[in-house]
Design a protein around this nucleic acid. Structure first.
Lengths: 150, 150
DNA sequence: TGTAAATAGGACTATTGTTATCCTAATTTA
DNA sequence: TAAATTAGGATAACAATAGTCCTATTTACA
């Protein structure tokens, strides 16, 4: 298994929604309704994004959220880090007291992978996620076929 | 959170261990002891690798596991797929009945990410994980500093 | 031929993390 | 003041992970 949490997924989708409606504040309720997900759970993601300064919020009627910065400078890693404590692909990467550190310090297979995964997430920006259109569905289908999913 | 399961982690580490001892059968017990992990849990990973044909096994005294193929052709994706059912970064990628499919088919942010992550895992081979040496510790430390881990 | 060491794998349990909900408070506009 | 909104703590339900236990089977070798 190798999966982003729903909290992360919703954060990414919400950020993209905000990117489309650049400027005007958008309420959590509108985003939740549009994506068909739980309003209250989505709120947790938005509050985390708020804490990290990726979005700003305005309370009260006519309130809502809007992006801080433009989609071409907000990376997926920014979003992942905003909503989750640990972003390492394995425990060793985030825990300072790894029991195996003495045996795998020199040749650490996971560090190689971690670097590559990091590169993907830090070099993919909100703008990149929205740029592609029909292509994505093709990629998605290819992936499903590759994995034998009907 | 964005993490490989222990089952996957152990599978990768075990495969690398086998790669180092190319040829001779290595017992699960030896690998478990060397890595300092549960023998019985590691066995689950090895049995999955066996089912997928990435390793061969020999029962009985002097038995053990050995790689099928060389480290330069075995990809990390091969290993991930061997030990886990779902390899999509989000549910939508592996479930055919995604409730949001109608709203995000054309502009699917997750497909872009999925493709990039797939590329990392399919283009990283067992050999790549062992190639680097001192460098990895530096990368690992950089990563920890980047994330404020002491 | 018996024993020890090894894989194979089913069943089960404990733990953890995720996901979701509920509730209350604070803020803001009209 | 009322309605709509964010803020956030508490907690419950659920699912996945991680790990253990047990038994069966295979095999080398004394």
């Amino acid at each position: 298994m190798f999966r982003l949490s729903k909290k992360t997924e919703y954060a990414i989708l919400a950020m993209q929604y905000l990117a489309e409606k650049s400027g005007e504040p958008v309420s959590a309720k509108e985003i939740a309704t549009s994506l068909g997900i739980s309003f209250e759970f989505l709120s947790k993601s938005l509050q985390s994004l708020m804490k990290s300064g990726l979005v700003n919020s305005q309370q009260g009627i006519k309130g809502g959220y809007h992006l801080v910065g433009t989609p071409d400078v907000i990376s997926v890693m920014d979003i992942i880090q905003a909503v989750s404590e640990n972003v390492g692909i394995v425990e060793c990467m985030t825990d300072s007291d790894c029991v195996r550190s003495c045996t795998c310090d020199l040749k650490d297979p996971m560090s190689v992978l971690q670097s590559k995964v990091n590169e993907v997430f830090t070099q993919t920006f909100l703008a990149d996620l929205a740029n592609e259109t029909q292509n994505n569905q093709i990629l998605k289908n290819d992936f499903k076929i590759l994995n034998g999913i009907n």
